[in-house]
Design a protein around this nucleic acid. Structure first.
Length: 604
RNA sequence: GCCCAUAUGGCUCAGGGGUAGAGCACUUCCUUGGUAAGGAAGAGGUCGUGAGUUCAAGUCUCACUAUGGGCUCCA
């Protein structure tokens, strides 16, 4: 047996640990290294080691489950004492002491009944046992510490040298909001010191890209305690960036045959009763009373668009009819889930509603998917599509849901577009395709969405006149490409680490005149750029040249342009490349051509 | 909403039961410089808010608000 053997991988891809494999095992050996399977074993065992350390430090601790997750492992447990970030070091230290005791990790099996008896006074273990269907269960033992566990585990503690406990959190027992809250500690573990270090460095790097940090540094947006949580303010730099994104997308909508509309911010509550929002979404809505009547601030834009559709009689010739709006919506998100720009209470959706016939669903869905793809490509985002099916709280017939869901699947499958299924994740009025992109530290966020809706047209009695002069019900497609400007800009900020492409950058060019005598030239250039729709500034403050160049560089502006005697004489500019610190000269005309070219890159 | 943590000048942070510090930013003056911090002077906070403990509270306790990491939920 190899020194570094920690388990086996069988034909079905299951991991068998050395405790279970016995003396002779024909399956593929798993060596102690940073491979996915090896890490799974190492992390699981590290979770147990952590539990053992916690048990020694807090003897009254009771353990629930301690699985391996994408980014490491965690263990949920109950203790009478409060455990904070400070205590993690203490636990880590205890873990290291335990490793020195050179315990072997042993496994034995008992029947489920024996287990129920063995853990009779541990209600958490009872809860775990009640979820296990098997007749026999396994117990892993290291030193005095025993835990009910399916494995797999490394053979001995000596394999657990490179770990780090990363955070403490609360977690509901079994993920149920109404259940007791347990303490959860997260950690990571690797086979080598280098891998652990690399991971920690990666986390540091991701922190530097955090949109909240960059947003403050670049003065893009802010929040204000007195005004309320989850209500973003857009500062000039952020507003400029946002405006540019809005303009790019506005053109893209017009090209694709969308028409701009706009509905009111607040509508009578009866509207929300008719739509079903009041019943299904009411707890997330802000309600108020005006002249003795109840009103609701819109959490979605559909109702407004429906009213506009209904205002004039529509023919089948009008379909598909695509209304779009940068719709400001308010949703009462629970305080604990707010997260920078990624999760707020007021946000603006790039929302559209497509009224069409059932036959038009597939081509329209595909058009939207194409739209999404162009936007994601423009910014270089990787994204995933997920079809979300009927949730528990839903309106409408099962058969209709079935038909709509199948429609979405057909549209994607017919065009070989990969997707996954999110069971029960649909909106209350219909199934949807969600577009998910990933932030700097790997968190997945839903951005765009395409939702089929047979329900609202019914509820609001939406009709069009068909070819045969009968009244027919259109289908509504709800869709957003960015999802919301807030979230999308948050993710965009992290994606670019604040170094936005020219067509988005809030300030695109900064001119640094070498001395006062060159200021006029710089201001003339600035005016010229502004006329061309380019945001330019002049840094002519009473500071040294180096200082002003440094300040400009730190602003993450695409172009820092130095102008001095030479440039004034030649009617040229000296452009400084931020990354390489190299410079090159262009004539004013060449410069304008370059900038205009970069501006048009932001076209979809 | 729940669990844990945090909350000090515009920003980033140090301090810590006896009436507040640094760097950057800001203001003024000197300096007019060819590619990442020229020099000097100055202004600015009562330490998130409200109670409590104490002779004395930024410093301890509690509540609230906000923020961060999670749970749950969602664009």
């Amino acid at each position: 047996m190899s020194e570094n053997l920690i388990g086996y991988l069988d034909d079905q891809g299951n991991i068998i640990d050395t405790q279970s494999a016995g003396e002779s095992c024909s399956a593929t050996p798993i060596e102690y290294d940073n491979s996915e399977k090896a890490l799974e074993i190492i992390r699981h065992s590290t979770a147990h080691l952590m539990a053992q350390a916690i048990k020694e430090l807090y003897p009254d601790a009771q353990f629930f489950v301690g699985p391996v997750v994408d980014e490491g492992f965690y263990y949920d447990f109950r203790v009478s004492e409060k455990i904070g970030e400070e205590d993690l070091k203490k636990i880590e230290k205890k873990m290291k002491e335990l490793i020195k005791k050179k315990y072997k990790i042993e496994k034995y099996e008992i029947s489920k009944e024996e287990a129920l008896e063995k853990f009779a006074d541990d209600d958490l273990k009872q809860a775990v046992l009640s979820r296990i269907p098997d007749e026999r269960v396994s117990i892993y033992k290291q030193g005095e510490f025993e835990d009910l566990c399916r494995g797999p585990h490394v053979p001995a503690l000596r394999f657990l040298n490179n770990f780090k406990l990363t955070r403490v959190a609360g977690a509901y027992l079994g993920g149920d909001e109404n259940a007791e809250m347990l303490t959860r500690i997260y950690g990571v573990a690797f086979a080598t010191k280098e891998a652990l270090k690399e991971y920690m460095t990666m986390l540091e790097e991701a922190k530097k890209r955090d949109h909240r940090k960059i947003g403050t540094e670049m003065e893009l947006f802010m929040f204000n305690e007195e005004s309320g949580a989850g209500l973003p303010f857009w500062m000039p730099q952020g507003a400029k960036l946002r405006y540019k994104l809005e303009q790019i997308l506005h053109k893209a909508h017009l090209i694709r045959g969308y028409e701009p509309v706009r509905g009111p911010e607040i509508l009578k509550a009866d509207m929300w009763r008719t739509s079903g929002h009041y019943a299904c979404y009411g707890e997330n809505m802000y309600l108020t009373e005006i002249d003795g009547q109840e009103y609701g601030i819109k959490p979605m834009n559909c109702i407004g668009h429906i009213q506009i559709f209904k205002q004039t009689q529509k023919s089948y010739r009008d379909l598909p009819l695509r209304y779009y709006e940068y719709g400001v919506v308010h949703r009462h998100e629970k305080s604990g889930v707010l997260h920078g720009l990624l999760r707020v209470r007021e946000f603006t959706q790039d929302d559209a509603h497509i009224f069409c016939t059932p036959e038009q669903i597939a081509p329209e869905v595909l058009d939207v998917v194409e739209f999404v793809d162009s936007v994601m490509k423009l910014f270089g985002f990787e994204y995933r599509m997920e079809i979300a099916t009927k949730p528990e709280k839903a309106i409408g017939e099962d058969a209709v849901w079935e038909m709509a869901t199948q429609g979405l699947k057909d549209a994607l499958e017919g065009n070989n577009l990969p997707y996954t299924i999110d069971e029960g994740g649909g909106a209350f009025y219909g199934p949807k395709i969600d577009i998910k992109i990933t932030d700097a530290i790997g968190r997945k966020w839903q951005c765009g969405t395409i939702q089929v809706d047979f329900n609202l047209p019914e509820r609001f009695d939406v009709e069009y006149v068909a070819e045969d002069n009968t009244r027919k019900r259109p289908v509504m497609l709800h869709r957003a490409i960015l999802g919301s400007f807030e979230r999308f800009i948050g993710i965009l900020t992290e994606h670019y680490a604040g170094e936005f492409p020219f067509f988005l950058a809030p300030t695109q060019v900064i001119f640094v005149p070498i001395s006062e005598t060159h200021a006029d030239y710089a201001f003339a250039l600035k005016k010229k750029l502004r006329m061309a729709g380019i945001d330019a500034e002049v840094y002519d403050r009473n500071e040294s040249l180096n200082k002003r160049i440094r300040t400009a560089e730190k602003k993450r502006v695409p172009y820092v342009v130095i102008v001095g005697d030479e440039e004034v004489v030649n009617n040229s500019v000296a452009i400084r490349n931020r990354r390489t610190r190299e410079q090159y000269n262009l004539t004013q005309d060449e410069f304008m051509v370059e900038l205009t070219k970069q501006l048009t890159e932001g076209t979809i």
